[in-house]
Design a binder for these strands. Structure first.
Lengths: 200, 200
DNA sequence: GCCGCCATTGTGGTTATCCGCAACCCGGCC
DNA sequence: GGCCGGGTTGCGGATAACCACAATGGCGGC
């Protein structure tokens, strides 16, 4: 797993070099590929940061690469570099969820700003997903009965009320409650409520 | 306050009539204005639904109207109708937060689908805002001391611990706690946590 | 048949929460 | 000075939560 950075795909070597230099001058890690195919071969889901993609390239275009990555469930935010003629293509990509696109010729600083923004977006989204995955994994460890009890705990009901609703003894509810807290890794109903609503 | 619907702004009467007919045939309330200025004069913040806006119009263009509405804090989602030549303009609007744009000539059903989606988006966002406003208003009624106590309640701490941290008696914490629940309109710490994290 | 997991329940005791009643101090306001 | 809101505290009791120890019954797998 490398550090988060900019992944550049452009078939023009001069532009690749210029972009790498530009990003590194702003302390943004950068690496470049000369074609969509080359990038796709190296692509891994744990690449963190943001993709900077030329729209018009030999063989596979930027938007085509974007489609391929979407099919592979890539979460990497994508910023397109588009010439005037390419705008309709880039626009279609934006409607499909691309992070942004900048028209050539672009302002260096603005591009880097957008890239940094995208890298931050990626980081927070990954953190969010990781948290959701943890919660989901813990939820899956609960037994059906425990889930029933948890629902009612989250409605702020007393153990006694829950016991009545489920036609079981209060003691049983207490046991379930302890199991739920243990499995969910929390120490109180308040923490439980926060952890769950934070990932809904 | 009228029902949620489509607000059409287009300087071509034939298109206005066609759109109104189209929307009404799908049970979507619709009303049209012949110019951006006319709409702006009638605009009110409680208009619910979605704005359908021609990009190219006499005097004030669609994107210009959008900018005006943004300045007036309009939350109305906007769908642009754009000809091929207008795409760069519409694109700029999308980057500023427009809901979507469809290129002319458009597919009737797809347009209505998008409009319905935007109306739903508006409804849920308004509900969300209303809830946040309620919570914010209730939070503002808390005294500084109560806020300190609430923070700690939300960390799942025992009244005893809170008392120690604030160097006050447990009884005082209990009193604050009761005040907090009363002012926030909840009956338990769990509800409090949910209401707050639901609006963060 | 034995083991493990799940659900269930009881006893008894500790700790927390929740509240009514009562009271004191302080600062701002009429 | 009197009133009021905010913060503070004590007492005592009702209620709920938490927990260790202990135990039963069902069900699926080895």
């Amino acid at each position: 797993m490398m550090a988060a950075g900019a992944y550049i795909v452009d078939d023009d070597e001069a532009i690749r070099d210029a972009l790498i230099w530009l990003f590194k001058s702003r302390k943004v890690a950068a690496r470049a590929w000369p074609s969509a195919e080359a990038f796709l071969a190296d692509w891994r889901d744990d690449m963190r940061g943001c993709l900077v993609l030329d729209v018009r390239m030999e063989d596979m275009s930027g938007p085509e690469l974007f489609d391929q990555l979407c099919e592979r469930k890539s979460q990497l935010p994508v910023i397109f570099l588009s010439g005037h003629g390419d705008i309709p293509l880039a626009v279609a990509a934006v409607k499909k969820g691309a992070f942004d696109f900048v028209e050539k010729p672009f302002n260096d600083n603005e591009l880097v700003d957008r890239v940094i923004e995208a890298i931050g977006f990626d980081a927070s989204r990954r953190a969010e997903r990781a948290n959701q995955a943890t919660v989901a994994s813990r939820l899956s460890q609960l037994t059906p009965r425990e889930r029933e009890v948890m629902e009612r705990i989250l409605e702020g009901k007393y153990n006694k009320v829950i016991a009545d609703e489920l036609n079981i003894a209060m003691r049983t509810v207490e046991v379930h409650r302890a199991h739920i807290f243990g499995k969910m890794g929390v120490r109180s109903a308040v923490e439980l409520a926060q952890r769950l609503s934070g990932s809904r």
